[in-house]
Design a protein around this nucleic acid. Sequence first.
DNA 1: CTACGATCTAGAGTGAGGTCTAGATCAAGT
DNA 2: ACTTGATCTAGACCTCACTCTAGATCGTAG
Lengths: 140, 140
Amino acid sequence: MTTTEAAAQSLSIGEVAERTGMSVHALRFYERERLLVGPVQRTSGGRRRYTSFDVDWLLICVKLRASGMPLADLKHFAELVRHGPGNEAERLRLLDAHRQRVDAQIQALEECRSVIAWKVGVYAEHLARGKARGLWDPTT
Amino acid sequence: MTTTEAAAQSLSIGEVAERTGMSVHALRFYERERLLVGPVQRTSGGRRRYTSFDVDWLLICVKLRASGMPLADLKHFAELVRHGPGNEAERLRLLDAHRQRVDAQIQALEECRSVIAWKVGVYAEHLARGKARGLWDPTT
DNA sequence: CTACGATCTAGAGTGAGGTCTAGATCAAGT
DNA sequence: ACTTGATCTAGACCTCACTCTAGATCGTAG
């Protein structure tokens, strides 16, 4: 076996990049910016070793980022978790506020979608009816 | 009456900013970047006068941007419309590709939403059951 | 005529979120 | 020992989409 044996317990930065879809650059950047709950462990040689907790946290980060949470909020959330139990109410507020923003975003996107779909329909119909007929309103 | 009389036909940049939700800076920027279909008309004094076509186009731009279309694609779309009839098939392709991206984005957001909602539930339950109990998995 | 706000231009600056580079070090295979 | 590829650090650099600045001009109200 290769590194896969020890990997059950800890992963290299490259392996974590693969599993999370982040780049190794981004992983180092996140650590520098204190976006992780704890500092990442190191081998005697100075290489990072990520635990499955780290990976789980990163997977959550990926979801939060994908849904538009700014890094500042992510950092705040990481700080809360870092300070341990006792601030769950604030974590809840943070996440719930974000959930509401995501809901709003989905709504907005669905509205955009229908506008776009309508325009797609206009073009499709235009093409179906045969090409180029005189006055073609560029805004429709 | 103020400017509202002539405004039925053409609007100042400030009025357009109000109606589209864009800033006057952004409006000038869009023009410089050739994101509008035509050049904006000017008064003898050099002030911009926007037609209702311009405004309609800008409202479409706003929707496309809000749904994540990059300015480069918007520019391409503007070019196609600028070159008049004959390229409707390409316009259709462009818009339809974007619609598909929007669909994917909505799907992704809904997935994020459910992950977040689940975590919100975890915190809510934790709080409901009374505070701080020993081993609290920071990743859940 | 004077003020004053809105607009003009060219170009510099901003903030978010990474991404890349250089030069060194580590670890594994042969 | 040598080669190769992954990783290390600090810090420069990048793209995107605006946003702002300075200094001039326009246009309207008083």
